[in-house]
Simulated scan of single mutants.
Amino acid sequence: MTIRRIGVGKRLSEAVVHGDRVYLAGQVAEDASQPIRGQAEQILGQIDALLAEAGTDKSKLLFVQIWLADMNDFAAFNEVWDAWIDPANPPARACVQSPLVKPEWKAEVQVTAAI
């Protein structure tokens, strides 16, 4: 089975396709000056773009891991999530509170999807 890497950098690839799955690196907002809603929209848009480049979309999400720097942002994040997710095909999901690498980051999202 071949491995295809997308967005290869010095430390990581933004996505790795292996067999019938794509694994995305944790996605964070590029403009971290935004509040949680703005950061969530950016992150989910980045996920859409990477999934498309891998040949799939959010209807094929298998598992999503969400890290929030502050659980007080949980409801606002979920408002953006609920407007984005394919309601007919919700993935398994986990959400935890954790400090993130940069203090201005409010969320990080990592996904695995089928191709």
Rank of each mutant, 00 (worst) to 15 (best):
M1H: 15
M1C: 14
T2I: 12
I6E: 06
I6L: 15
V8H: 06
R11S: 12
L12W: 05
L12E: 10
S13H: 01
G19T: 04
G19N: 13
Y23E: 02
Y23Q: 02
L24N: 02
A25G: 06
G26L: 07
G26S: 09
Q27H: 09
Q27P: 07
Q27W: 07
V28K: 05
A29Q: 02
E30D: 11
D31K: 09
A32Q: 05
A32S: 10
A32P: 02
S33C: 06
S33P: 04
S33M: 06
Q34C: 10
Q34R: 15
R37D: 14
G38N: 08
A40I: 05
E41R: 14
E41N: 08
Q42M: 15
G45W: 03
D48E: 09
L50N: 01
L51A: 05
A52E: 11
E53L: 12
E53R: 12
A54K: 03
G55H: 10
D57K: 04
S59N: 09
K60Y: 12
K60F: 14
F63N: 07
F63P: 03
F63M: 11
Q65L: 13
I66F: 05
W67P: 01
D73H: 14
F74M: 12
A76G: 01
A76I: 00
F77N: 04
F77S: 04
E79V: 12
E79A: 14
V80E: 13
W81V: 11
I85H: 10
I85R: 15
P87H: 02
A88I: 00
P90I: 01
C95E: 03
V96E: 08
S98V: 00
P99L: 12
L100Q: 03
V101P: 10
P103V: 12
E104R: 13
W105P: 00
K106T: 00
K106P: 03
A107P: 07
E108N: 11
V109C: 12
V111Y: 10
T112D: 07
T112R: 13
A114H: 11
